[in-house]
């Protein structure tokens, strides 16, 4: 780990490609910083509304029933502001702010850009709690893969152990979770298990907690995804362990190392490198599989985009969803590739 960090900091030893990548990343960040400094402020955007709208907003102040809904979204370099009235006469005004200017966004390209900013903002879960949008996807994926790796290692060791009962139990577990659809597993954990044992997932949290339903659903999803991921990780770990040459076991045995020490010091450290590529794959599969939580009403990227589609009858809403998923997976692929390279030192 220490040498890994050292390698990161030691710029002289970097390859040209790494340097170029970092220069590009830094330039993009610098441009974003400049553009975000140049974009109109929130007050500027809110001042964009027409006189008629301004009058209505002013009238709303002090009254308990608001007629105008003001939405303001900011997405690093772009921001978006919309004013809409409810009631007999519906009027909406939309504006997109970019590099010191605010553009009308009621039709044409402006409308498209405004929608994109607004949808992306909502899908990322900006301004909402932790269990919202992309944050939910990332949290669920990371935690459940972590559970999966730990569980999978234990299952793999169980499956290849000489104890026949243990081996059969672990094999059966893997067979069950790989042989049934994840969505049904999710339903079973979320609906059937509480029904059988007479509890509700939201009971895990305090009575007054308004988010209890979501938190409960999140726990259920975490269990379902963790158990499922465990089965897949187990096969990855088992294959990696069994791909280590028999000679390594023999050498360790001839030196008098016990089975557990052989596994811990010789076999598993060597198999870790072979696990990295398929585990990366598993993690990325998990990011995409996490979209199934829409079935238990957790507010992830997929659920939000589906909600936007039905409420606003906007069919382009899935484009930003795709892009968000793509950016997340690209980011993790990049990280995993770096890890893989570091592990290939001795092979």
């Amino acid at each position: 780990m220490k040498s890994f960090l050292k390698g990161l900091i030691n710029v002289k030893n970097w390859k040209k490609k790494t340097k170029v990548t970092w220069i590009i990343v830094l330039v993009v960040i610098a441009v974003c910083i400049v553009l975000s400094a140049l974009k109109p402020s929130e007050a500027d955007m809110k001042a964009m509304a027409s006189e008629e709208m301004q009058a209505m907003i002013k009238a709303d102040e002090g009254s308990s029933r608001k007629r105008v809904t003001v939405t303001y979204n900011s997405l690093i370099i772009v921001n978006y502001c919309s004013f809409s009235t409810s009631g007999a006469k519906e009027v909406t005004e939309k504006y997109v702010g970019f590099v010191g200017h605010a553009f009308q966004a009621d039709e044409g390209f402006g409308k498209f850009a405004g929608q994109m900013v607004n949808y992306t903002y909502r899908m990322l879960g900006c301004g909402e709690n932790l269990l919202h949008g992309a944050k939910l996807t990332l949290l669920l994926t990371t935690l459940s893969t972590a559970i999966g790796v730990v569980l999978g290692t234990l299952l793999a060791l169980g499956k290849i152990s000489k104890n026949k009962v243990l081996s059969k139990v672990c094999g059966g577990y893997i067979f069950f979770f790989r042989g049934t659809p994840l969505l049904i597993q999710l339903f079973v954990i979320y609906y059937s298990v509480p029904a059988i044992f007479g509890f509700a997932w939201r009971d895990l949290f305090a009575v007054g907690d308004t988010q209890a339903v979501y938190k409960g659903a999140f726990i259920a999803a975490l269990i379902a995804y963790g158990l499922n991921s465990g089965a897949y990780c187990a096969e990855i770990v088992r294959a990696a362990i069994q791909s280590i040459e028999k000679g390594q076991h023999e050498a360790a045995k001839a030196l008098g190392l016990s089975y557990s020490k052989t596994m811990r010091l010789i076999i598993i450290p060597q198999s870790v490198r072979r696990m990295v590529p398929p585990l990366c794959n598993e993690f990325i599969m998990m990011i995409k599989d996490a979209s199934m939580v829409f079935a238990i009403s957790l507010m992830d990227i997929t659920t939000i985009s589906k909600n936007i589609m039905t409420s606003e009858i906007s069919y382009i809403v899935f484009l930003p969803a795709l892009i968000i998923y793509l950016i997340i997976t690209a980011f993790f692929t990049w990280i995993f590739n770096a890890i893989e390279k570091k592990f290939s030192l001795y092979e």
């Binding site: 023999e250 001839a254 190392l257 450290p269």
Partner: peptide
């Protein structure tokens, strides 16, 4: 009481030469 050498050496590839030699005396 018995040491063994193999046809295919079977050194531990993830450990340095010194670590290969020191592993068993320390761990066993």
């Amino acid at each position: 009481e018995m040491g063994m050498c193999f046809q295919r050496f079977n050194l531990f590839p993830h450990k340095t030469v010194l670590e290969n030699i020191c592993l068993a005396p320390i761990e066993v």
